[in-house]
Write a protein that binds this DNA or RNA. Structure first.
Lengths: 228, 228
DNA sequence: TTTTAAATAATAGTATTACTATCATTGGCA
DNA sequence: TGCCAATGATAGTAATACTATTATTTAAAA
């Protein structure tokens, strides 16, 4: 892809931050290094103190950007969903055939992290890893209903909606287009995780980040579900 | 079901506990109340100290049973998987037709919590809620590979294996029987959660714990995937 | 160029968490 | 009766998840 500034396309709920991290050098450093550190340490071991030390700032300063590390996680995951939505829109804009669109959708998110990144301070490949390993913790919390009512998960919903429309275009009789869409994403991430850590729970293999088998599997599931 | 002692059928990896909680009154209280409290507080807010206070014991004593709360979570989730496996085996033992078996499998776990519980100190219905809300945290951790190598997730793998065999029996050409199985479980739990908390991410509705729509959806997906 | 406001740093402090350690008590069985 | 295993009581520690205060730097307006 060309190096258009995707960040102008990324709109994240303002409730997710206290001070826009994209708008300052330090803020971008927070985004950048929090992705790296959560991926490396895992969400539980990751702390604002460690992050502060890494970027040579202080805990208190990070708290001025994000209310707590859980909201930061939602921010990062939302970023990812928005990034995938952007890719899908970009890659399908010249396609009118719905079946072809679905194929592109699957390809887009399976290979999302391989696309030439356009935001210097976000490593999309590592962000994808993070979403695979820690993403579901963003919405499995006791505050889910309150957070949802504040619109914190809009990006994921929009993505699901986008895909569900294509599903309905392909097969108007398919009864569960939203479930199809979310299942596609959850399944994709789950099986990358399983292939890496719990191989007995899946049939695919992923070596050296080769996700080709995953793409084949998702298309196989999709085709059968939609009667193609 | 009759009140046969299912606990004799439940075999959990000995590495999951330091002292068998099923073998003492206090241990059973730990199981019982940890289920209730994790469901109520969420896993993050749940602590051994709160649990100790609830059962009128001490933190140190609980640490004599479980190494930490994360291992306790794996223990409880393993219990759930083992319980579902048991139900599936029981309910399918008189059925030879594979398609019918799959239908029973789906019915068994969708309605698992409605079966008359046979272990007095485990509320299976609440345990199912816990698995839906917190279950994935049991295997999304930085220690996953070490824990997996110790056999901590055997119960889930066995369950997946059980279902994958039926899938292969129905359609020997289906290329991803394990992915089918795990996806069935993950999807089931996800969509119960979505229906309750993020309804825009699913097509089904669940009011008053009526999971009938979920069963219909899972059968719909299963039939299409297996070409029935 | 100075003034000033905003951002960040430095530092400290608090309640809670996730443990570990030690010693006392109790209740059953040998 | 005595002993031992299980549990209780108590204390302590390092780390976490914050909040508060004051000092310093920086960047932009006057």
């Amino acid at each position: 892809m060309n190096n258009m500034n995707v960040s102008s396309k990324i709109s994240l709920n303002e409730g997710l931050y206290l001070k826009d991290p994209q708008a300052s050098e330090l803020g971008r450093k927070i985004i950048n290094h929090s992705i790296l550190m959560i991926d490396e340490l895992g969400f539980e071991q990751f702390t604002f103190k460690k992050l502060a030390s890494e970027i040579k700032s202080t805990e208190a300063t990070i708290y001025r950007y994000f209310k707590n590390k859980h909201i930061l996680l939602i921010y990062l995951v939302s970023w990812y969903w928005e990034w995938v939505s952007f890719l899908i829109k970009k890659n399908t804009q010249n396609t009118s055939d719905a079946q072809e669109k679905l194929r592109i959708i699957i390809h887009s998110f399976v290979f999302a992290s391989k696309e030439n990144p356009s935001v210097a301070y976000v490593n999309e490949s590592i962000l994808h890893n993070l979403v695979i390993s820690e993403g579901m913790k963003a919405y499995h919390t006791k505050n889910i209903d309150k957070e949802n009512s504040q619109g914190f998960f809009k990006n994921y919903k929009d993505l699901a909606s986008l895909v569900s429309e294509v599903v309905t275009e392909i097969n108007p009789d398919f009864a569960y287009p939203y479930a199809f869409a979310t299942n596609l994403f959850e399944m994709s991430n789950n099986h990358i995780y399983f292939a890496k850590h719990l191989p007995k729970l899946t049939d695919i293999e992923i070596k050296n980040d080769e996700v080709g088998e995953l793409e084949v599997m998702l298309n196989y599931f999709a085709d059968r579900l939609l009667g193609l």
